[in-house]
Structures are given as C-alpha cells and as structure tokens.
C-alpha cells in the first residue's frame, strides 16, 4: 500500500480517486465507493453518514450523501454515474468505521457502473498522492 511521503496517509494502488477525496474500487462492473484516508483525517471524528437508498441513480459528481463530523458536514460526490446496488448498512450505527478503516470496513456504497468510459476521468493512486501532498504542504 502506498503512502504519501510527507503526510503518511494511506493511498492504495488498486483504487481510483476523485479530487473530492472519494475512492472507487472496481469489481466486475461494480464500483465500491468510500472516502480516502486523507479525507477522514481532515474531517476528524465522524459521527454520521447519510446514505442514499438502494436503487437510487446518480450522475457522476452528483451529491449522493453526506458525512458529518462533530462540527462540519462534507458532501459525498459520486465518482461515477450509476445505480446504487448496496449501501453499507453498518455505518448508521458505526460511523467511526470510516475513520478506522476507510478503504475496507468503512466503504459507503456500491454502484453499478453506468458508463465505463468515465473511469478515465478518475485519478490513479500516484496522481492522487501528488494532490494530497500539495494540499498538505499548502496547509502547513
């Protein structure tokens, strides 16, 4: 698993990323979606995840839910167009999973991919690493 040299955030190689700090793992036409380690660390203690319903359709970049930390709310943007086939039903009662394990237990939704070609617009791990390194520097 890759790590950002400066910041120590986890950025797994096999995922796709968005500039809004969502990740997508592609498995047989299904995109598993969550937020990155960097995103969860910026938000701090996550207290709530507002989920869509199974069957909801989203266009790429549409807001599909929100993540609440103590004092902020972050909107979740669909990395790809598609239809929600599964939601992580553990999250409503265990929102801290997004903090603890953002890439596995803390996944948020699974999307049936509507348009494969949109994958090209997502960032590979290296590019995302650069983005967060830049952001971390700017912050410091």
């Amino acid at each position: 698993m890759a790590e950002s040299a400066e910041s120590g955030f986890k950025v797994p190689q096999d995922l796709f990323y968005t500039k809004n700090h969502e990740w997508a793992r592609i498995e047989d036409g299904i995109a598993v979606v969550g937020i990155t380690d960097y995103a969860q660390s910026q938000l701090g203690d996550i207290t709530y995840v507002e989920l869509p319903e199974e069957g909801d359709d989203f266009k790429k970049d549409a807001v599909f839910g929100t993540v609440d930390s103590l004092k902020t709310v972050a909107e979740l943007y669909a990395p790809l167009s598609g239809s929600v086939v599964e939601i992580n039903s553990e999250l409503p009662n265990n929102a801290e999973r997004v903090n603890e394990d953002p890439y596995q237990e803390g996944w948020i939704i699974k999307l049936e991919i509507g348009n494969e070609s949109e994958l090209e617009e997502l960032m590979p791990a290296d590019q995302y690493l650069k983005l967060i390194s830049k952001l971390s520097k700017k912050k410091a």
């Binding site: 207290t47 709530y48 930390s69 902020t72 709310v73």
Partner: peptide, 12 residues
C-alpha cells in the same frame, strides 16, 4: 447534533 442545523449544513 448541530450538524443538522443551518449554520453547518446550510442549504441541506
């Protein structure tokens, strides 16, 4: 549970 409220959640 202030994230429900307008000063944080604004339009939503």
């Amino acid at each position: 549970f202030a994230t429900r409220e307008q000063f944080i959640r604004r339009g939503r």
